[in-house]
């Protein structure tokens, strides 16, 4: 239960951060916080009380935790790191063109 609460709190925190922070790098950090919340939620969903890690080697019976959410989280982590690297390299480009990271200055395209 605690885990679910924390996961949702992290997602909310990340979304709030994306909405109320003005710095682009901070927005990216908030995005990664929200992502972490999603990972935590998935792992918590896959957890079985008293289960062991889903590894065949040395398996001695008993319940295992669900491996599928873990695979999904791993994929999501890969995706998250790709997005992060690309986002930061774009931020550096933004800084070069605009001289600031404030999103309210990043408004040449509109209408």
């Amino acid at each position: 239960m605690m885990v679910y609460l924390t996961a949702f709190a992290l997602i909310m925190l990340g979304i709030a951060g994306m909405l109320f922070r003005r710095n682009l790098l901070k927005i990216i950090m908030a995005l990664s916080v929200a992502d972490s919340g999603a990972y935590l939620l998935l792992i918590a969903i896959g957890y079985r009380s008293g289960g062991t890690a889903p590894i065949l080697t040395g398996y001695e019976g008993g319940p295992m935790v669900d491996p599928l959410p873990q695979a999904l989280v791993l994929t999501a982590i890969v995706i998250g790191v790709c997005v992060l690297i690309m986002a930061v390299s774009l931020v550096v480009n933004v800084y070069r063109h605009y001289g600031t990271l404030d999103v309210s200055e990043l408004r040449r395209l509109r209408g």
Binding site: I15, I27, L90, V91
Partner: peptide, 19 residues
């Protein structure tokens, strides 16, 4: 600058949608 700004906005919105 145009590509950078558009890409930035697209990426952040799209990533939130993906989350």
């Amino acid at each position: 600058w145009e590509a950078v700004e558009a890409g930035m906005k697209y990426m952040i919105m799209g990533s939130l949608a993906s989350t």
